[in-house]
């Protein structure tokens, strides 16, 4: 290793250490690699969206392939940065984050897309009698969304949002419960179920209805790692797919495991969330090509949409955005 490369590596490790302080302790990537361990940074608490990961852990799908997986991260973890800095081998992100990262010069690739249909939606009170996203925006009121999310920009371009007062979403449904004209972003596996339990009558319109449908809960890694460690990556994805197969067939045990780690979500919500996300994960395409598979066409569409929204300079080559591990020899024909 040259001096320059060594100093680059020192800085990268230093940065990674800084970034990882809130996320995980101790071990760096080099130590893990020698022990056959990999780390994956989650971007949220253990919830049904990560069901397949926990099921794979529970059924030793990783272990029997010689992989020791450590799950780290959590809400607010800078997952893309942690992966890029090499602090963790894998992370969970949304497909639009992958394209943004590539545009910003980071070599991030997707290797597994949990949701074929994006599980995010806009929740309103059913009593308002709205029938579509267009209805929601035409009716006006307050819209609580995370500032800067791509789909808000997409909405602004394709709908008339002038009647909406857009405010930050603070990860609490309390404002929704208190305001009959408030609409807010949700993950179909979480907030609508919580709102119903609190006595509200929520109705959800998926953002995918607008035509903006990036893959979600995407497992990411660096392009360099994907190219260099094809076999290990194939094993990893195979284990992940096995875990998801198990979770889709019976989420009970993995839900119990996650419930111990995330006491804020009760068993009922886990059960309902797992049921709600099933059709978004295993649609016709996933049934044919396998859970987590991705299509070139979908990445091309996303790149084009993000470019039209001005969020990226030039749309990245869709082929660079993802690695279809299980079919490295022959990429599947895009369905749809």
């Amino acid at each position: 290793m040259s001096r320059r490369a060594a100093s680059k590596r020192a800085v990268a490790i230093g940065m990674a250490a800084l970034l990882a302080i809130p996320a995980c302790g101790g071990e760096d990537a080099a130590t893990r690699a020698t022990a056959g361990k990999v780390a994956l940074a989650l971007n949220w608490k253990p919830e049904p969206e990560f069901g397949g990961l926990y099921e794979a852990q529970r059924m030793d799908a990783f272990a029997k392939r010689g992989i020791t997986l450590e799950l780290t991260g959590g809400p607010g973890a800078p997952v893309v940065q942690m992966v890029e800095a090499g602090k963790v081998e894998f992370g969970i992100a949304a497909a639009d984050e992958v394209v943004l990262a590539r545009d910003r010069g980071a070599d991030i690739v997707a290797v597994f897309a949990t949701y074929q249909t994006n599980p995010q939606g806009i929740m309103v009170h059913a009593a308002r009698g709205l029938h579509s996203l267009a209805d929601v925006f035409a009716a006006g009121g307050t819209l609580a969304v995370e500032p800067g999310v791509a789909y808000t920009k997409f909405f602004e371009k394709h709908y008339d949002l002038t009647k909406m007062k857009i405010v930050p979403y603070g990860y609490s449904i309390a404002p929704f419960l208190g305001d009959p004209t408030l609409a807010q972003q949700v993950f179909v596996t979480a907030e609508p179920i919580a709102a119903r339990r609190q006595g509200a009558d929520p109705q959800v319109f998926l953002i995918a209805e607008s035509g903006f449908n990036p893959y979600a809960a995407v497992v990411i890694t660096t392009g360099a790692r994907a190219r260099a460690e094809t076999k290990r990556l194939a094993d990893f994805v195979a284990a992940l797919r096995e875990g998801w197969r198990g979770y889709l067939d019976d989420p009970t045990l993995a839900n119990a495991l996650m419930g111990q780690l995330n006491k804020e979500m009760d068993a009922d919500t886990f059960r309902l969330g797992a049921a709600a996300q099933q059709p978004l994960i295993e649609d016709a395409f996933a049934k044919q090509s396998g859970v987590g598979a991705m299509s070139l066409e979908r990445w091309a569409t996303l790149g084009r949409q993000l470019q039209e929204l001005g969020l990226i300079g030039a749309a990245p080559a869709p082929r660079d955005c993802f690695v279809q591990v299980e079919t490295l020899q022959s990429p599947p024909e895009p369905l749809r």
Binding site: A12, M15, A106
Partner: peptide
């Protein structure tokens, strides 16, 4: 610049 830190990090 010398360390080649990604603009995403710093």
């Amino acid at each position: 610049r010398a360390a080649g830190v990604s603009p995403l990090l710093l």
